[in-house]
Design a protein around this nucleic acid. Structure first.
Length: 361
DNA sequence: CGACTTTGACCTGCGC
DNA sequence: GCGCAGGTCAAAGTCG
């Protein structure tokens, strides 16, 4: 268990929880939206607007961390929910040995999850510090060069990792002079026979160009946001060179208008649903690229870390200790709580989830 | 007929 | 300075 997350994160029942692909009992944090400015010490995660409600189950509220789903909660854990069916089931008679074994297994599992998540946070924290502490003077020029390759296949040696570095360098170079340009990448699994280069993400896009690039036989399509004339957001869509069933969409900039489908998303039914809806979440800019493939139903969704950044990793043990310190955790909890509660999507989704959990009232 | 897509030409930045 | 590659423009084509 992660003891430093607010209780409502544990108790909110996720519509779709990220499950470890090889460990059915392991569950991960997902859908915890933030931005670089909101979480300067953590790799930012972008929750794509399109992800919510694009398929069943929706991923708009995906908040279990280091825990099995709520069905494993016991009445002892949550006496206020003792009348819930899941709690009744979990509180059925069990011998002491069985209970001990079960608790030990859960403790070991949760401890392991906690350790790995702590290490992940420490690594991301260290990477962020390394970038902010010593930005190379040529970063701006280098980022311009490297940003050319922003749509290279994510799994190649020069792909996502370098792109993440380029994105981060671009962020850093821009930070001192003007506002950052948010760059995020979303991988979408599509029908290989579908050659439309269309990623339905809830926004309206106008195609203004298409180009065949050197490293990829499939063309790259260029889109501008067509919902608002003044919206600066651009999108580039290209098939992965290695897997033609994967569309890689790169978004540049931030929309200066609400999502046209937000209302529909909040009801769990995106207006712009379709076969190629990107059921994926991509960490943007300065973090590793993580693709959550939710196109599989029935709990088959998994998290795939395409490639981590190769930023210099300082003393991980020391950083683990720092991350594990009460002060850091308290600050992190407060920061996360602030970010989450400021997000109207989160509050709306949380309210909806609570209402779903209380059908008898 | 208007909105959108296609596609070749042009522009720009970078490496050599 | 030249060539290359990515990004953008805009005229022509397509569709409802």
């Amino acid at each position: 268990m992660i003891p430093w997350l607010p209780p409502y994160i544990y108790h909110a029942t996720p519509a779709a929880t990220i499950q470890h692909p090889k460990r059915p009992g392991s569950w991960y944090l997902g859908g915890l939206a933030s931005s670089p400015r909101q979480h300067p010490k953590l790799a930012p995660m972008l929750l794509m607007d399109s992800a919510a409600g694009c398929c069943s189950p929706p991923v708009c509220l995906d908040l279990c961390v280091g825990l099995s789903p709520s069905s494993e909660m016991t009445a002892a854990d949550h006496p206020e929910r003792a009348d819930r069916p899941c709690c009744k089931a979990a509180s059925s008679p069990m011998s002491d040995d069985q209970a001990k074994t079960t608790l030990e297994a859960r403790f070991a599992q949760v401890t392991d999850e906690n350790r790995r998540l702590t290490e992940m946070i420490a690594y991301l924290y260290a990477s962020q510090i390394a970038r902010q502490g010593s930005p190379p003077p040529e970063a701006a020029a280098a980022s311009r060069k490297r940003s050319r390759d922003s749509l290279e296949p994510p799994s190649t040696s020069s792909g996502a990792g370098n792109n993440a570095k380029a994105d981060a360098a671009a962020d850093l170079s821009d930070e001192g002079t003007c506002r950052r340009i948010k760059v995020s990448r979303v991988c979408t699994r599509i029908d290989p026979a579908d050659n439309t280069l269309t990623v339905r993400d809830g926004y309206q896009w106008r195609k203004y160009g298409q180009k065949v690039t050197r490293d990829n036989p499939s063309p790259r399509a260029y889109f501008r946001c067509a919902f608002a004339p003044s919206c600066p957001v651009k999108k580039k869509v290209q098939r992965s060179a290695e897997d033609s069933s994967v569309l890689v969409a790169t978004y540049e900039g931030e929309h200066n208008h609400p999502s046209p489908t937000r209302a529909a998303e909040l009801t769990g039914c995106a207006a712009d649903s379709g076969a190629s809806v990107p059921c994926s979440i991509s960490i943007n800019s300065s973090g590793p690229t993580i693709t959550l493939d939710l196109t599989k139903n029935g709990g088959g969704a998994g998290v795939r870390v395409l490639e981590a950044t190769d930023a210099p990793a300082p003393d991980v043990k020391k950083l683990c200790r720092e991350v594990a310190s009460p002060d850091f955790r308290t600050a992190l909890v407060e920061q996360m709580a602030r970010s989450l509660t400021k997000d109207p999507k989160f509050t709306d989704a949380l309210a909806a989830a609570i209402l779903r959990q209380l059908p008898e009232y």
